[in-house]
């Protein structure tokens, strides 16, 4: 079971770490680990990539709604997907979250 870190303050939970909370202005942002599983919130299939990802095209970029949190994470996938599909983290490659269907 792999874990992802999420950051929480003032009702907003996100995978993006901030210095100060944009709502209350304090640095009292708490963090916790959540499971890497989730569902496809939305996606696109990229046919025209930037040069550094040309060797991967076409590939999917999905926004995954993580289980047990409001946070979402952007992931790369290779399988055909639809909104609502269950997915889980497969690997972290060069800083990218690579997901597979669960």
């Amino acid at each position: 079971m792999k874990k992802l870190k999420v950051y929480f303050c003032c009702g907003h939970e996100t995978v993006v770490k901030r210095v100060y909370c944009p709502t209350c202005g304090t640095d009292g942002i708490s963090e916790r680990e959540v499971e890497d599983k989730g569902r496809i919130y939305s996606f696109t299939k990229i046919h025209v990539p930037p040069s550094e990802f040309a060797h991967l095209a076409p590939y999917y970029v999905a926004l995954v709604q993580l289980d047990g949190t409001n946070a979402k994470v952007t992931a790369r996938m290779t399988e055909d997907i639809a909104i609502g599909d269950k997915v889980e983290l497969f690997n972290v490659e060069d800083g990218a979250y690579v997901y597979k269907k669960a």
Binding site: Y41, F43, I46, V48, P50, F53, L63, V73, T74, A96
Partner: peptide
């Protein structure tokens, strides 16, 4: 400097994800 850029998201890609939702 983000996992999102590393995932291969592009500008058009962002609006594609938005459009499907």
């Amino acid at each position: 400097d983000s996992s999102e850029k590393s995932a291969g998201l592009t500008f058009p890609g962002f609006f594609g994800v938005l459009a499907n939702r």
